[in-house]
């Protein structure tokens, strides 16, 4: 079973939408890998440089309603091909969240105060996810552990490696 975690990319804003994650003009690509250089291209945050700041990251920590807008799974794939397989947020848009689990990736919801605490840890933070215990451990300016809850079906999808593998066996 694959492990989840790594250095953290903090995106301190709510309502980051799919067009910001991957603009529609790149939806003409027919391979996931081709999306790689365009990650978060249209996201405007103070001091944020998408290519520089996503390099080497494995986890995104952000605020509420992450991934709102379009149904494009490209918004999940562009993280996947950049080796980011966990997004931790206060809440997600439904389709984005489902797309994450459908790809065997983790969309973890935490209360606002936990997100605040994570965001205060600073730029060099790393996060390790323990899927069995349903905890994340963050190491940055200090160390903290947060408990999360995963819907059992979502967990099954992650363990199966995604919805296609799950559904092909079962239906």
């Amino acid at each position: 079973m694959k492990t989840f975690g790594g250095p953290v990319l903090f995106l301190d804003r709510s309502d980051i939408n799919t067009d910001e994650i991957i603009p529609a003009k790149y939806l003409t690509e027919n391979s996931k890998l081709a999306l790689k250089p365009y990650i978060l291209e249209d996201l405007k945050l103070p001091g944020f440089d998408p290519l520089r700041d996503t390099k080497g990251k494995g986890v995104v920590v952000t605020r509420s309603n992450f991934g709102c807008g379009s149904s494009r799974e490209h918004a999940v794939w562009v993280f996947e091909v950049n080796d980011i397989n966990v997004v931790i947020a206060e809440s997600f848009a439904r389709i984005f969240r489902q797309n994450m689990f459908n790809c065997g990736m983790l969309a973890i919801e935490l209360p606002g105060q936990d997100i605040d605490a994570l965001l205060s840890l600073g730029g060099k933070t790393t996060i390790a996810v323990d899927l069995d215990k349903e905890t994340i451990t963050a190491r940055g300016a200090k160390e903290m552990t947060c408990k999360f809850a995963l819907n059992s079906f979502d967990k099954d999808l992650v363990q199966a490696g995604g919805w296609l593998a799950y559904a092909d066996k079962k239906y």
Binding site: S71, E73, Q98
Partner: peptide, 13 residues
């Protein structure tokens, strides 16, 4: 609305 994996399973199953 769904993503491509949901669509793929929809097409198949």
């Amino acid at each position: 609305g769904v993503g491509t994996t949901d669509l793929e399973v929809g097409i198949l199953k």
